[in-house]
Design a protein around this nucleic acid. Structure first.
Length: 346
DNA sequence: AAAACGTGGCT
DNA sequence: TAGCCAAGTTT
């Protein structure tokens, strides 16, 4: 009897599984909270970027009940720098829902109903935390399956065919290991820029390898160019404190603390007008890339006695690293403070 | 259903 | 370097 694809893959996984902070040793039942938390953090985010955040979150909030009891603001600040901030807001909502339920749903459908849990995450948690058979499809699995079956339809159109193919090779047992094995294979052997076919446990079954050009798959639609936007952020300082605002809950950097700005958007440049009349001085420019546009953000500092209108707070400079500024504004602040220390030395 | 939504690392 | 890419979800 010949080994199935899943047998070959699971044997490989038993020897080559990556060791990651959110994984447990073979045979141990993982904590659903840690599985869910890691999966949400890993959405569109590399394992290297996630590791320190996962450590910090699990140290500070060891259980879903602890996280449910945390102020949303504290969770948002702890998430600062990781990106896709709606994840943090949904994380709190989901934790509170789970706490109300008395524990995590143990089915894919139940998990899928939680905020911030989509098809991928529901399947991954059902499989990894609860051992349920689920078809787990992330970018790794998409790539591996597209190559295994030489699926020539461009993404995202190929998604249906990929799901059907993934379903046929997903085993009923060791569902969580199989899912993680596919992802490890995609992350270490069958990568986007390379295909180490000689090391691949599925090499003899792979159609793309048989065709001699594995990197041809998956075929992708061409992407649009990202526009370049310009805008300004404003640094208003008084008594060793800087004026910070909280951005609207939805949209770009939603719910995060920030420097006041001139209204730049993904679709429009900033208007350039400052929130206070008075003397402003250019303090530098920060380049920052978002998913769908690039931003050239000028930073202006204020020399005057005025107080900004509207909501905001004076944040002590010595505790600025606790403000939970997203990377864009952390860069802007760094630019102001670095320039100042240089000035001081001159 | 296409577009919005962050960031850092790698080539 | 400029672009590509990473354990996607929401609207």
């Amino acid at each position: 009897m010949s080994a199935t694809m899943s047998d070959l893959l699971l044997d490989w996984y038993d020897r080559h599984a990556r060791r990651l902070p959110w994984r447990v040793s073979t045979g141990e039942r993982p904590d659903p909270y840690r599985v869910w938390l890691s999966e949400v953090m890993l959405q569109q985010t590399t394992t290297a970027a996630v590791a320190p955040y996962f450590a910090a979150f699990t140290a500070r909030w060891p259980t879903v009940e602890a996280l449910a009891a945390a102020p949303e603001e504290a969770v948002m600040a702890a998430w600062a720098g990781l990106g896709y901030y709606s994840r943090a807001r949904n994380l709190v909502k989901a934790a509170r829902a789970v706490a109300d339920l008395g524990g995590f749903p143990d089915t894919e459908a139940g998990l899928r109903a939680l905020p911030g849990v989509g098809d991928y995450t529901a399947a991954a948690v059902a499989a990894i935390a609860f051992g349920r058979r689920a078809v787990v499809i992330d970018a790794n699995v998409e790539r591996v399956v597209a190559r295994l079956y030489a699926i020539a339809t461009p993404l995202p159109g190929a998604r249906k065919a990929i799901r059907v193919a993934a379903d046929t090779i997903t085993p009923g047992k060791r569902a969580g290991d199989f899912a993680q094995a596919m992802m490890d294979l995609g992350a270490t052997i069958c990568t986007a820029r390379d295909a180490k076919c000689l090391l691949c446990p599925l090499q003899s079954a792979c159609a793309a390898r048989a065709l001699g050009d594995p990197l041809r798959f998956p075929v992708k639609a061409v992407k649009k160019a990202r526009p370049l936007r310009t805008g300004t952020a404003f640094w208003i300082e008084r008594d060793e404190a800087v004026w910070l605002v909280t951005r609207p809950a939805k949209g770009l950097l939603g719910g995060m603390r920030a420097l006041p700005d001139d209204g730049w958007l993904a679709r429009a440049d900033g208007h350039g007008e400052a929130p206070l009349a008075g003397a402003w001085k250019a303090a530098g420019v920060v380049r920052h890339g978002f998913t769908h546009f690039d931003l050239e953000l000028g930073v202006a500092t204020y020399a005057g006695e005025g107080v900004p209108a509207g909501e905001g707070q004076w944040w002590p400079l010595e505790r600025l690293d606790e403000a939970g500024l997203p990377t864009l504004f952390a860069k802007a602040a760094e630019r102001v403070l670095a320039q100042r220390s240089t000035d001081g030395e001159d």
